[in-house]
């Protein structure tokens, strides 16, 4: 009953192997097994988006992925968004736009926003709100988050 599975992945560009039980979610594996605690748990049923990560180019709620399913996958978490000590324009926009208060939802929003802007570099306010509707924030009322995404889009297009 305690058999663990060997899972080989690439996380934030680096090969990462880990052992996990089939009952452990990818979120549990990231946090408890690998030690990447930037991905947060808010509900454990896919409804808050705090655990959003990017798997093979597509965002998912990592609480609804089994760790064993990640075999062979390339995973991007909040820890991989900045380029070393250079923050990503989205991170800068969130900082400068005061788009976070408590900060617990911020990693999920940033990972989700990056996927949005890669797909749609110039989204409308509605497209931003629709894309981020699976990411709950209880502090900001979303106003400054939406503006930060708009600002990041502008900066990234200028770059």
């Amino acid at each position: 009953m305690t058999t663990k599975t060997h899972v080989q992945t690439t996380i934030n560009g680096e090969p990462v192997d880990f052992l996990c039980e089939p009952r452990q979610s990818l979120l549990e594996c990231l946090r408890d097994v690998i030690g990447l605690t930037g991905t947060k748990e808010g509900c454990n049923d896919g409804n808050c988006g705090a655990c959003t990560v990017n798997i093979d180019g597509r965002i998912v709620t990592s609480c609804l992925v089994l760790g064993v399913e990640a075999q062979g996958a390339s995973i991007e978490t909040i820890e991989g968004i900045a380029d070393g000590t250079n923050l990503h324009p989205i991170q800068l926009a969130f900082l400068e736009g005061a788009a976070l208060q408590c900060g617990i939802c911020t990693p999920g929003f940033i990972v989700a926003t990056k996927a949005l802007l890669e797909k749609n570099p110039d989204p409308t306010e509605h497209e931003i709100r629709f894309w981020l509707a699976n990411n709950l924030c209880r502090c900001t009322g979303y106003d400054k988050i939406v503006r930060a995404v708009q600002e990041a889009a502008k900066k990234m297009q200028e770059a």
Partner: peptide, 12 residues
Amino acid sequence: DGVDKVTGRAIY
């Protein structure tokens, strides 16, 4: 505390 919170480094 902003940088820690946009990079996932802040410890909750």
